[in-house]
């Protein structure tokens, strides 16, 4: 595989890890907000397993990239160095440790503590981004936008599997769906605002959406997000008012949202591996 194929693979693994993390956090958050339901613990553990598998694959590929190693033995030898001496290494391991702790709390029925711990792990991902690495006023602004973006995305996309389960099992699905809509609206507003501000700093110019890999992937994310919004609007204005008759249709629509959300997170994983267009021309010498 050439470099760009490895880059995409690293990004996809990062996206899967993020999706699993979002799912585990979102399930705990949903239970903390709307009350526990049978099946939520299993859903949270499924998210944990996906976060662990995606994270392990991402860690391996990232180590191979850091050490410029191809042979499995060389990558294996570099793992302790990455774990101990890079922010990526210790932060990824710490985040997985925190998620495991959160899952144990969820297993014990302490959903609020689980949501808080997993939420911290979700937000910590921002310290692997451009803003935290840059420092200074611009870096701090980017870090703040990233925290808002990732937090709001986790609250929305991460709670969708739990919502699908709850819509199927709740005695009052309409009240639940209406309460969820309010959460969704806040998240969407925060995602839109923080995405725009990050694009403004990292992409720099409209033409870069079509002329760079970063811009094109960001554009794909925007299109997928628009699709998610359309589905969410249909759920809110068409399917929710006719509940419980439309229970099946709503569950199907949420399943589509989850599928689109997974693709969007995979694209997000890839975009985080690419150089933002605004930095073009910085090489010296």
């Amino acid at each position: 595989m050439d470099d760009s194929a490895w880059l995409v693979l690293r990004g996809l693994c990062r996206g899967l890890h993020l999706a699993g993390y979002f799912g585990a956090f979102g399930t705990a958050f949903f239970a903390a907000l709307f009350g526990p339901l049978p099946g939520l613990k299993r859903l949270a553990w499924a998210g944990f397993v996906l976060a662990l598998a995606g994270g392990a694959a991402w860690f391996w590929l990232q180590t191979a990239y850091f050490a410029s190693a191809n042979a499995p033995a060389s990558v294996f030898a570099a793992l302790p160095l990455v774990a101990g001496y890079t922010r990526f290494g210790w932060l990824t391991l710490a985040r997985m440790g925190v998620l495991l702790l959160a899952m144990l709390c969820a297993q014990a029925g302490r959903w609020r503590v689980a949501a808080l711990l997993a939420g911290l792990g979700v937000l910590a991902q921002s310290w692997l981004g451009h803003g935290a690495a840059m420092g200074g006023p611009e870096g701090n602004a980017l870090l703040a936008f990233s925290l808002l973006h990732i937090g709001a995305a986790a609250c929305w996309l991460g709670t969708l599997p739990a919502l699908a389960l709850a819509v199927a099992r709740s005695d009052t699905p309409q009240a639940l769906a209406q309460a969820y809509s309010r959460l969704g609206l806040i998240c969407v507003a925060l995602i839109l605002a923080s995405a725009f501000l990050q694009y403004w700093l990292l992409i720099g110019h409209l033409s870069a959406f079509l002329t760079t890999g970063y811009g094109a992937t960001a554009l794909l994310k925007t299109v997928l997000f628009a699709g998610l919004l359309a589905l969410a609007a249909r759920n809110r204005f068409h399917l929710t008012p006719t509940l419980p008759t439309s229970r099946k249709a709503l569950r199907r629509a949420i399943a589509w949202e989850i599928a689109l959300g997974l693709i969007l997170l995979a694209a997000a994983g890839v975009v985080m591996q690419l150089p933002p267009p605004a930095m073009a021309g910085m090489e010296m010498g």
Partner: peptide, 24 residues
């Protein structure tokens, strides 16, 4: 939004060389 994007400042992500001593 288009105007703001068109006038966006550059954010220098990734570790690029800003200066050196001795200089190039």
């Amino acid at each position: 939004a288009s105007l703001m994007l068109a006038a966006a400042p550059a954010a220098f992500a990734h570790a690029h060389l800003k200066a050196s001593t001795p200089a190039a």
